[in-house]
Nucleic acid binder design. Structure first.
Lengths: 406, 406
DNA sequence: ACAGTTTCCCGTAAATGC
DNA sequence: TGCATTTACGGGAAACTG
């Protein structure tokens, strides 16, 4: 099994991919008087569906019944962990499917139910509970959309099981949403977002900051494309998160990537700075790209700002970003090449900022400090209090960590 | 379905991967008198196994019976094409498996049988035939090994079904083998190998060319590692073939990659050449790498030979090879950077050789000639006459193109 | 025709088996 | 324990389907 920290693909609970194994665990919170027989738990997918017909329905391919056992750790209560569960879609003759409005697959919520029955003092007692709403996807390309749904749901409702949530999704206030966004970066990339970065994101979502309080529509966040771009806000932001995770982690953690800066702000920041001052920002026109801009102050005349084409995962997997910064040179015909990058904004000498992340050969020699990708928190990636509801469930079961990828 | 030319993974018939769909087709060569009922063909995997027990045994997961039909093209004979077939291993209690010597999975040969029965003038007539030996793999990483087996088998025997072939595989003469190797390049990369390239490969396989006739052992070709290297001859050669297919196709087709040159020969070739003369060769120490070496002729003193670290698919997928050659510059501190690459051996100006393949921006502008990867032959990749036996089968069936990937 | 969704399957990594 | 082989599944692209 995978170690919980830094999996190849993110630890995003409540999202299940068909045909891929997942795990879930239920714990019995009440202590039963000694029972000398085994307590069988059965888990069923999409058991209780909302009155109207749902678009898709799934079932568990593999064995779905297991006996509860005393948990080793903790205070010896009963629990059971299902492993190697797999989901497959139920096929209905076409036309049977309801078309509940224009819901996308990642807005369609599902649930995993648990049931057990036992007999105590002549009485048949049944226990039942179910998971938080789940999103079912068929390809990782749907993961960002699914995760957006999980975030929105947990941010905006305390209901444990409102599967119709996305029929009329509530708006989020910018103060709520910005906190969650920062938490995404903090959990997945080891460093959250500061006020300036968040304000750039807020402007991107809200246009000019005019009316208060600021409300963000679900569709603005995730479904509609950013005006003039072929992707939505969350698609764009998530692509940056992925880029950081794979290629920029140490530099991001050190806080050397301003990242979220509009072109106007960028110029304002650099205008008065010394020649060769540069900053790093994420591309707004391409998914998952990072670029740098430096300022040149001619003897007399206006400051010039020069940027490079954004680096994407393809180029970064051939050469680490810190090395790119170290080695970047401007080559004009017949001149000695020179790095135009001298000071990381506001005024830190380049090598001081990035020196410890230089990797490959060249000048700096074989130091190879190879900092392993860090993982600041072994907890599931939830915003603070996001999943508190779990602990407030009145059900006799607790669904530990809900559903996670094996 | 895939187009037959340039699939993501090669068109390598007779190799089947478990859990992946494949296709096969049988044709009835004799013309039957009018029959007014349907002729059913059943296909079975691993039906007739050699007397001793085989290591692994597979079966067809999907539907394996189909009715023959009049073929549209050709002279109207009966044929049937099975699609979406899938293989799965039969599980036997452990210990049941025979251990027939140290055969690897890719040396284990299997077969696909076809059967049909019909009744003519009161007589029950059964027809049966089977495919050429097949290799079953479970991961593409076994594809090179499997393909080596297919080549060796078809090169060295005319028996239609000797499943025990690799129990004592015959040796190949160098003249046979070199022809096949050249054909591999010609079929998969659009250009075969010339005499010089082949002779370098021959020396690599045979050591110093001493005794005649030269015989190559199967294990030397494919199983044993090259002395001092962690890979076999064929692993190495195949990794180069893959590199060409993915990243060097146009340059290879133009013949600008000498490629197979020993370091000694390389020096001999470059020694008398003008400063800046360079040639391209494949790495002998790493799998799937290409490098260039140029000569510098100091005012007085010996010729100097300088090579770069081999480029592998990782680096080449970030920047095309032709662009690397165009842009490569030597940067010594405080000097104007200059490309040390002037003339492609023997004396062709660099831009004349590679100009049309330059891709990305820079000097040459937006020409973007984007030559699509060519595919010189739509035929299955067989050496000349390699599969003639197919047409000589005495069986009333013909197995058209044997087994191919869907 | 087309966009949303699923399937296909390579290629890497990890797990498993022997 | 180490090596050979299989399984897992991310990711890109093709196929499917209303």
């Amino acid at each position: 099994e995978k170690q919980p920290c830094m999996p190849t693909h993110p630890q995003k609970p409540l999202i299940i991919k068909t045909q891929v194994q997942f795990t879930t665990k239920v714990r019995l919170l009440v202590k039963l008087p000694e029972v000398d027989y085994q307590l069988k738990v059965k888990t069923t997918f999409d058991k209780d569906l909302p009155p109207g017909r749902v678009n898709r329905q799934f079932f568990i391919l593999t064995n779905n019944t297991k006996v509860m056992d005393v948990e080793e750790s903790s205070n010896g209560c009963l629990s059971v962990e299902f492993r190697h569960l797999q989901l497959k879609e139920k096929k209905y003759p076409s036309g049977t499917k309801g078309n509940e409005g224009p819901l996308t697959v990642t807005e369609e919520l599902h649930s995993l139910s648990f049931e057990a029955q036992f007999c105590m003092q002549g009485m048949n007692i049944g226990l039942a509970t179910c998971s938080l709403p789940l999103v079912v996807i068929s390809n990782v390309s749907q993961l960002p959309g699914g995760w957006a749904s999980v975030m929105w749901y947990n941010l905006l409702t305390d209901e444990p099981e409102n599967l119709a949530f996305f029929s009329s999704p509530p708006r989020a206030s910018w103060s709520q949403l910005s906190e969650v966004l920062s938490w995404q970066f903090s959990t997945f990339a080891g460093r959250g977002l500061n006020k300036e970065q968040l304000s750039m994101l807020g402007e991107k979502l809200l246009g000019e900051l005019l009316c208060l309080p600021h409300h963000i529509y679900w569709s603005k966040f995730c479904k509609e494309n950013i005006p003039g771009k072929p992707f939505s806000f969350w698609q764009w932001l998530d692509s940056i998160l992925e880029l950081i995770k794979k290629h920029l982690l140490p530099v991001w953690i050190d806080g050397y990537i301003l990242g979220f800066v509009s072109k106007e702000t960028e110029r304002a920041l650099l205008r008065e700075k010394e020649s060769g001052t540069f900053l790093l920002r994420f591309s707004e026109s391409h998914l998952g790209g990072i670029t740098f801009t430096w300022v040149e102050q001619p003897e007399n005349g206006e400051a010039k700002f020069i940027s490079v084409e954004p680096y994407t995962k393809n180029r970064l997997s051939a050469l680490p970003f810190a090395d790119i910064i170290r080695d970047y040179k401007v080559i004009a015909d017949g001149t000695v090449p020179e790095s135009p990058l001298k000071f990381l904004y506001p005024d830190m000498p380049k090598d001081e900022a990035f020196g410890k992340h230089y990797n490959s050969q060249q000048n700096k020699g074989k130091e190879r400090l190879l900092t392993p990708p860090q993982c600041s928190s072994p907890e599931p990636p939830m915003s603070p209090g996001m999943f508190d509801i779990l602990n407030e469930q009145i059900s006799p079961f607790e669904i530990a960590s809900a559903v996670s990828v094996l």
